Amino acid sequence: MDWLPVASVVLLALGFAYTNGFHDTANAIATSVSTRALTPRVAVALAACANLLGAFFGARVAQTVGNDIIAAPTGAVGLSVCASALLGAIGWNLLTWARGLPSSSSHALIGGLGGAALAAGVQVRWAEIVDKVVIPMLVSPIVGLVGGYLVMAAILWIFRNREPVRIARGFRLAQTVSASAVAFGHGMQDAAKTAGMVMLALTVGGRLPAADGPLPVWVILTSALAMSVGTYAGGWRIMRTLGRRIIDLDPPHGFAAEATAAAILYAATALRAPISTTQAITSAILGSGATRRFRAVRWGVVWDIGIAWVLTFPGAGLLAAACSALLGALIR
């Protein structure tokens, strides 16, 4: 097959990585910015660097996305499915970004893959999706809620007799580490998903023998760079939602949420589960905030985020299916 169609899909995947970067910037740094542990520019630069480094440790997630979600055929049909999935995910990212809603780029991509494959008559590996996507998608927010609550409760107990001003100062410094840890996990998860899509495009385009083989360094590097550039571009709308609109955070609560989210991301990567960074950090913020009082959480904002989560799979899937039907008609 000619290089041009394959290269076009690869560029589209890098475009998705860019939107993923500015869409999910807030995942890693919103809490640190809102507690004034880091200035916005420093936080974004830190997140971009950590995203880049984390990408080199996400091969397991890349193989899941590139090999376990659909059985894409080689040739034009396979490439059209890849392109349609990416277009659906990009469209959903832009739509939710415009509304300031922290939806999942990961679930948008996987929903896009499923929708594009169904529209093209390509096999969807439902058992793998349930095992590696749906179950982790349901479990990770629960773990985030419980974990965020327990970590914050432990902090409150350990430092119960300390001066609040000194505690806040110490946790502002600690948030530099915890925010970097979340950004590193984001790189492991989300840059790796783009790398998996690039691998899938190269495989169906006949440029690689299998999508489950070792990841070429250039695939990891370009995917990570595209996402890091998007991260540096910033996602200020979503940052305001996570950092200020859900609950008013202080440094200890921000640290508890970030530490919990980072642990979830690392565990999921080890299990090859492409989970949502957005879900991990949002649920951890809610869990840490719940140690105050129920009414401290702005539940109307949480409801809007929940609706966006529920709609992400079908929304991105429908957009991708429409693109798949259009591209399918063009290549026939």
Score class of each variant (00 low, 15 high):
251 P>Y: 01
18 Y>Q: 04
76 A>R: 10
38 L>C: 08
255 F>A: 09
36 R>N: 09
81 V>D: 09
174 A>V: 12
285 I>N: 06
21 G>P: 11
163 E>H: 08
326 L>A: 15
84 S>E: 04
122 V>Q: 10
179 A>E: 12
88 G>C: 13
266 Y>T: 10
332 R>Q: 12
228 S>G: 10
177 V>G: 14
90 I>D: 05
156 L>H: 14
87 L>C: 15
170 G>C: 03
180 S>R: 08
120 A>Q: 05
327 L>T: 09
183 A>D: 09
38 L>H: 04
174 A>M: 14
258 E>H: 01
45 A>K: 10
304 D>A: 09
285 I>H: 05
238 I>S: 08
235 G>V: 06
87 L>R: 00
111 G>I: 13
324 S>H: 01
177 V>N: 06
256 A>E: 03
327 L>P: 08
156 L>W: 02
330 L>F: 09
272 R>V: 04
170 G>F: 00
1 M>T: 13
254 G>T: 07
167 I>Q: 13
327 L>G: 08
94 L>I: 15
209 P>M: 01
271 L>S: 08
289 G>K: 01
201 A>I: 08
156 L>E: 15
327 L>R: 01
98 A>L: 14
6 V>P: 07
59 A>Q: 13
97 W>H: 06
11 L>P: 14
297 V>I: 15
127 A>F: 03
165 V>C: 06
97 W>E: 00
154 A>W: 01
